[in-house]
Write a protein that binds this DNA or RNA. Structure first.
Ligand SMILES: [Mn+2]
Ligand SMILES: [Mn+2]
Ligand SMILES: [Zn+2]
Ligand SMILES: [Zn+2]
Lengths: 128, 128
DNA sequence: ATGATAGTGATAATGATTATCATTCGTAAC
DNA sequence: GTTACGAATGATAATCATTATCACTATCAT
């Protein structure tokens, strides 16, 4: 009984039209730019609803949640501690090993989050 | 120039005497129990200072930061989404693959965090 | 002693997120 | 078409972990 309202559709459109990892404020701002202003509480609720339905993906960073398109295959993230950029990677062997660890402990795995922190190529170069 | 004051030593003792993953409030409460009450701001600063010096380890969960003893070898965590229990595991092959991913992208890795979410053995059993 | 420096603790402020609540929308029954 | 109900909206208050302030204190070197 989760409805895909006009507001939620607008949020979904914003996110689907880019490769960015959006936080709630960024989405709210983008909608305002467009003329489609939406209450901030509705943005939060819309993002949560869309993620619950699998229409977008979420990642939990230290300070806040970010959302991205769901039409990519599963991946994890490299986060630059200097410029904040977010890169993506996919390493099925890691996922296999995670399943193995869970199986060994009779842990029923529902999800995971792997974040690699460091300096992106660009920032590494600048760090003479 | 970070000092190991009496307050910080008290925090460190609390954490070193157990295998728990402590949040700031739990540490503050444990200190109060002991008679060694410490201002909550000092607890936060003390935990941050101790972690910076490598005397304790921190993990960032969705809602809050938790701290644990630093005298174990590196490990990652399995988190039960039902009872909140935290188990630990160590899988060097995963760490190797992480380094490989970073190297491929010329990303200078500084740290990582791998969380596996799901049901612990106990909770899985109860879920008839 | 005199500073310089860092730490403490009470409390205010911050910032992301969630709760409240009156109002509105969408749809299904009458 | 009107009514009725559940869900959604939006303005705003509340929550909660954490950080910032600021006056005061402890430590240590000159
Ligand atoms: Mn991504
Ligand atoms: Mn641990
Ligand atoms: Zn960077
Ligand atoms: Zn459990």
């Amino acid at each position: 009984m989760q409805k895909l309202t006009a507001q939620r559709q607008a949020i979904l459109d914003i996110i689907n039209r880019s490769d960015k990892h959006w936080d709630a404020d960024e989405v709210a701002f983008a909608l305002k730019e467009k003329g489609t202003g939406i209450g901030i509480a509705t943005v939060y609720r819309g993002l949560a609803a869309l993620a619950e339905q699998g229409l977008i993906e979420s990642i939990q960073l230290a300070d806040k949640k970010r959302y991205e398109r769901a039409d990519k295959k599963h991946h994890d993230h490299l986060i630059c501690t200097l410029c904040g950029s977010i890169e993506e990677f996919c390493k099925p062997e890691i996922e296999k090993l995670q399943d193995l660890v869970a199986a060994e402990r009779e842990f029923h795995i529902q999800g995971h989050q792997l974040l690699l922190f460091g300096l992106c190529a660009g920032c590494k170069a600048k760090e003479s």
